[in-house]
Amino acid sequence: MTFSTRNDKDVVIVETTFQRLDASLAPALRAALLAPVDAGATSLVLDLSGVSFVDSSALGALIAAAKRLAAHRGFAVAGVQPAVARLFALTHMERVFSIHPDTGEAIARLST
């Protein structure tokens, strides 16, 4: 179980094998998202296609990434499952980062 990154053009995609992102994993998630930003990335996609649960602590890590990339509008999430989509809707995250059905669309959005 881990976080990993890959590149597609100028976009960094963060992937995870964890199915639930909760407070126990929030520090590792935050580190996985911010490490590419610290290295100079301006476009970042978090692939949530295998994630069925996100809590408010993990959400905080996503917000941290969105804030760091706000100047570039460079943070997106992809592959959001129903329970996670509901959390994003309740917390108005569509105003914080862009939300896409899959990484391909997210990459296309950030590459334009």
């Binding site: 408010s56 602590s57 905080g60 890590a61 917000i63 804030k67 706000a70």
Partner: peptide
Amino acid sequence: DLENLPET
């Protein structure tokens, strides 16, 4: 005002 958006 994302800069002041709380993370917690």
